[in-house]
Write a protein that binds this DNA or RNA. Structure first.
Length: 569
DNA sequence: ACCTTAATAT
DNA sequence: GATATTAAGG
């Protein structure tokens, strides 16, 4: 009965990947790479995978096929042109989003690419999983049949409280705007099951269940932080998050959960503390903040305690490690939010600068489940150095970058402008693991094994419109220089089934969004965000794949995971 | 009009 | 289990 409905929405993913509607142009001076990449893409189902070995060719193709090309995936080092030049020229010629891939994980390089308009920056090697998610960057304005269309054209729906967004000088059009309630107002009941059709007409959509990925959650948190206690309310948060398709209800729901967890956290911490204050590697600031907060949720929103403050019961040694690991990338160590705050909130003063969010989604009987995080970190760092890491890293990278998103339209007050300078700490490090870690695996993958993987469709979201990079860019205008602009990588996640155990072996996906966060944004001092991500998931439950050995499942970081549906056969 | 909570549905 | 939705009360 009612199941049908639920399923229907989700069924989209399983039944209609429509990746075939995404045409990609792969550019790489190396024939072998080109061949491998295009083959991977092809195997994944992308349509019309074109290739070019030189930037000029790429530009030429892009220009000629502006309407058919949805995405350009290019090596950063092409023989005839550097990536910046390519980005610029490409921009002049087409709106097609450009994703850069490079061996260079140098932050400057990455940021530079993003600043120049790339929508994403992959540090090689790329894996199938990363490619699988490529479509998210595609803009497809399909006409005839199709599909993905993230761009959301017309619905530029009003800007609720927007104000400026319009002027943008350089880029193309921008159309973000929260059109949240636009959808929400839509039919309350009509939802039968018709979503099977992916025809683009927007009407008739049922609100798909949104998966709060880390990225989304990060945005959420950032918004909350920026807003400050007083205004961390759904509507505002929503505006600040600026995620197309995200509705206020979503935020409210998440906020509710978030607060709840904060509360619990606090309680847990307090208890722990009461018993025996043992650890505080840190200065006390966090502790204090922690205290401030007790049960009351609402007012404390912005001063989260540091996760560090409370230790996960799980492995203690981890801590130690963590302190070691702090080898953030150059720019990396900075503390992130503080600056931001200063900009305008009296309330928040810098005092509580960082704030990390202690929230974990999993609690076991009252115990916070922080565990993974630390380990994680740890592990990954290691990996950073060169180690084993299982898989999923690509996604992680993906996610991270994405998360970086620049928040563009804000209503003005607080800004993120500052963000660009120091703020990018997060950003910066991400790709690292992306890169070292999996090499082996990737290599293997590259060898390709088309057969196995991907027969099943990937996750395609039907409805969630993807914001284009452009839209936001402009807003920044001047600031733009500071910040990388790039689009929110994945707005809403739609569930993705694909059961390929092979590829995703261990995904421990889960969403600990909250937990993760703490790790990522955690203390200003060391933040080593590297974490792998879980590949798309499937309905399978993942309970701790490794259990024993590496308990670190990646729960924290999944990017896309299957959500709901279990299409029960 | 919008928020928060709690309860309940999916 | 995570999210959505609803209802009730501010």
């Amino acid at each position: 009965m009612s199941d049908e409905k639920a399923i229907s929405i989700e069924s989209v993913n399983s039944s209609s990947p429509r990746l075939e509607a995404v045409s990609v142009l792969v550019v790489d001076g190396d024939s072998a790479c080109l061949a491998i990449l295009s083959r991977m893409l092809y195997n994944l189902g992308y349509k019309a995978v074109m290739t070019a070995k030189r930037a000029y060719d790429a530009l030429s193709i892009a220009q000629k096929k502006e309407d058919e090309l949805h995405l350009v995936l290019t090596e950063a080092h092409l023989p005839d042109m550097d990536k910046y030049e390519l980005l610029e020229k490409m921009k002049a010629v087409s709106k097609v989003p450009v994703v850069i891939m490079s061996d260079d994980d140098d932050e400057n390089a990455m940021l530079g690419g993003l600043f120049k308009g790339a929508v994403f920056y992959f540090v090689k090697p790329l894996t199938i999983n990363s490619l699988k998610n490529l479509w998210q960057f595609a803009i497809i304005k399909n006409r005839n049949h199709v599909v993905i269309d993230f761009t959301e054209e017309e619905s530029s729906v009003y800007a609720e409280s927007q104000q400026e967004n319009t002027s943008n000088e350089g880029l193309e059009r921008d159309s973000f705007m929260t059109r949240d309630r636009w959808l929400e107002r839509k039919n309350p009941e009509g939802t039968y099951k018709d979503e099977e059709r992916e025809n683009s007409d927007s009407t008739s959509q049922k609100k798909p269940k949104l998966v709060w990925t880390n990225e989304l959650h990060k945005r959420f948190l950032l918004a909350v932080r920026l807003l400050g206690v007083d205004s961390a309310h759904p509507k505002k948060i929503l505006q600040h998050m600026n995620v197309p398709g995200l509705r206020k209800e979503n935020v409210s729901s998440h906020l509710q959960k978030y607060r709840l967890s904060l509360k619990r956290e606090q309680e847990a911490i307090m208890k722990a503390r009461a018993r025996g204050p043992k650890k505080s590697n840190f200065p006390s600031h966090q502790s204090l903040s922690t205290l401030n907060f007790r049960g009351g949720c609402s007012h404390t929103l912005n001063r989260y305690s540091t996760s560090t403050a409370y230790q996960p019961k799980r492995r203690s040694h981890v801590q130690d490690l963590s302190s070691h690991m702090s080898r953030p990338s150059p720019a990396g160590s900075v503390c992130f939010p503080s600056q931001v705050y200063s900009s305008g909130h009296p309330t928040l003063g810098n005092e509580s600068s960082f704030t990390s969010m202690p929230y974990h989604s999993n609690y076991k009987n009252g115990q916070p489940t922080l565990n993974n995080q630390l380990d994680y970190t740890n592990d990954h760092n290691t990996n950073h150095i060169g180690n084993r890491i299982t898989s999923n890293k690509e996604l992680a990278g993906f996610r991270q970058v994405g998360s970086f998103v620049r928040y563009s339209n804000f209503d003005g007050n607080k800004t993120f402008s500052t963000f660009g300078d120091h703020g990018h700490s997060n950003l910066v490090d991400f790709p690292i693991f992306l890169h070292n870690s999996t090499q082996q695996e990737e290599q293997q993958q590259k060898q390709l094994q088309p057969q196995v993987l991907f027969s099943p469709p990937l996750q395609m979201p039907s409805p969630p419109p993807q914001p284009k990079e452009q839209q936001q860019n402009d807003i920044l205008g001047q600031e733009r220089q500071l910040q990388p602009q790039f689009l929110p990588s994945a707005p809403l996640q739609m569930p993705s089934p694909s059961p390929l155990p092979a590829a995703a072996e261990q995904q421990g996906e889960q969403d600990d969004i909250f937990g993760l966060e703490s790790q990522l944004m955690q203390s200003p001092q060391w933040h080593m965000p590297s974490m792998p991500a879980a590949p798309t998931a499937h309905e399978q439950e993942k309970d701790d794949p490794f259990g024993i050995e590496s308990e670190e499942t990646d729960d924290l970081f999944d990017i896309a995971k299957g959500t709901t549906q279990h299409f029960n056969d």
